[in-house]
């Protein structure tokens, strides 16, 4: 296990280093001067120079890269050019929305997808299978922003029982905050659930044909017991892999849904930062998200071992 951790740590470090260099270079070639964006068309050259100096943009590119890298290593993410507060503060505010939202969506989608996928596999080619598959096909085909608009029209405009968007903030209380996240979570969960259900179905179908399932039936287990105890459990590995990917996506890839519900999440923060050339925020966020993807993948790897006994017992199996 120690070797495994070390390997992982090295991979993580190299991944992040490459990512940092890439994002820095991309930000360098991106046209647009942050000072000009902030000060607009009437700004004079001396004012622009004053602001550039204030933001440290008058240093050379390499100097800025290593200063930034040094900051990252010591936990100093720097200050946003536009907002003027530390990037940590910005991220902390947005995480308070993006993380719970991603968790809600992933829980909702799992709760919907796994029973449906297992059901479809167990009743292969019967009416319920065809029904579930048709439904998931639709779930994948419907763009989530359109589904989100339908939800808003129904729950916010027509019935007026849920807000059309915005985020109340956790200091407004648990339920009010949760209420503002409900529709976005559903809109995000549906397409994810559709994908997850299909993966679950095909994976369960595969394990149902495995020798150990036949053995389980032969030793006298009912179909149902063999299905849940042996087939489903072993089928979960690809499902967990997909869930890991989905969670990473949900953390920052929800920009469209954030736009529809005007939620101040991480996705919109990156988008705004790019549009306003708040380069320091873009760079920091990309690195943080890259780190979160690596960490989630690592956790998924650990889960494999929990789920599949064959993968346990010894670093080599991992």
């Amino acid at each position: 296990m120690a070797v495994f951790f070390l390997q992982r740590l090295t991979t993580l470090f190299i991944t992040l280093l490459v990512a940092s260099l890439l994002v820095f270079l991309v930000m360098e070639v991106l046209p647009g001067d942050p000072a000009a964006v902030i000060l607009g068309v009437n700004a004079r050259e001396d004012t622009l120079a004053a602001l550039r100096a204030e933001m440290g943009l008058d240093r050379s590119a390499w100097e800025r890269y290593f200063l930034w890298l040094g900051g990252l290593l010591t936990g100093d993410l720097g200050r946003s050019y536009t907002y003027g507060v530390t990037v940590w503060e910005l991220v902390a505010e947005r995480i308070g929305l993006s993380l719970p939202l991603a968790l809600m969506a992933i829980v909702l989608s799992t709760v919907m997808a796994i029973p449906l996928g297992v059901l479809a596999a167990a009743r292969r080619n019967k009416a319920s299978d065809v029904g579930v598959m048709g439904f998931t096909q639709l779930g994948i085909a419907i763009p989530n922003f359109w589904f989100a608009i339908l939800l808003i029209l129904l729950f916010a405009v027509h019935w007026q029982i849920l807000p059309a968007g915005g985020f109340a903030g956790w200091d407004a209380g648990f339920w009010p905050a949760l209420k503002t996240l409900l529709l976005p979570a559903v809109a995000l969960a549906l397409p994810q659930a559709a994908i997850l259900a299909r993966v679950t179905r095909s994976s369960v179908l595969e394990t149902l044909g495995e020798d150990y399932v036949r053995t389980a039936r032969a030793k006298g287990l009912t179909r149902r017991a063999a299905l849940w105890r042996h087939a489903v459990r072993n089928a979960l590995i690809p499902v967990v892999t997909i869930m890991g990917l989905q969670f990473s996506f949900l953390l920052a890839g929800t920009i469209i849904i954030e736009n529809v519900f005007y939620l101040p999440g991480l996705g919109r923060l990156i988008f705004q930062a790019i549009a306003q050339r708040d380069l320091i925020v873009v760079k920091d966020l990309v690195i943080l998200l890259a780190a979160s993807v690596v960490v989630v993948n690592f956790l998924v790897d650990l889960l494999y071992a929990v789920l599949d006994p064959r993968l346990r017992g010894g670093g080599h199996a991992l």
Partner: peptide, 13 residues
């Protein structure tokens, strides 16, 4: 987002 703004107006938010 204009669509979101329209919905927020209509919903009375």
């Amino acid at each position: 987002d204009p669509a979101a703004a329209t919905a927020a107006m209509l919903a009375g938010d």
